[in-house]
Amino acid sequence: MISLQVNGEWRELDVEPEMPLLWALRDELGLTGTKFGCGIAACGACTVQVDGVAQRSCVLLVGAVDGASVRTVENLGTADNLSPLQAAWIKHQVPQCGYCQSGMLMAADALLSENPNPSDADIDAAMTNICRCGTYQRVRAAIHDAAKAKA
């Protein structure tokens, strides 16, 4: 049995320790906000936070995060109670198809916790997620905006 704290709640998982966290979240726990994109940590669609650090869950084995605290996009804020980052995302109308945006948001949220006022270069370095719709310019603007809102 593997125990994880997922979005603040302890969950027990009867799965192989080598199952990637992504599939434990999606297929076992029904948390489908975290997306599958490449399976090799190349695109960032599966980004979640493990003990506050952005991680690519498609290559993170669930056995390696036994006992850890995992945070997914479902915990970022709700439609009625958006986080400042989500509000900035809406203000800048960032998502197009939206598929990569859970990962983008989790990476951006981790960046802002670590660095409340990131420069363009900081954003370049932290935000390596792929967006096929090319929303990058708006991602950058929304992160700057959320940083201001939090300040």
């Binding site: 999606r26 029904g30 948390l31 489908t32 906000g33 975290t34 997306k35 599958f36 997914t72 996009v73 479902e74 970022l76 804020g77 709700t78 439609a79 958006l82 989500q86 995302w89 809406i90 109308q93 960032v94 998502p95 939206g98 598929y99 945006q101 859970s102 948001l105």
Partner: peptide
């Protein structure tokens, strides 16, 4: 006008084909 589909795309609620159960 703000797009109707965007709020659900920032909360992870938007349902794509791959999310169906």
């Amino acid at each position: 006008k703000q797009r109707f589909d965007i709020p659900a795309k920032v909360t992870g609620e938007s349902m794509y084909g791959i999310d169906v159960k």
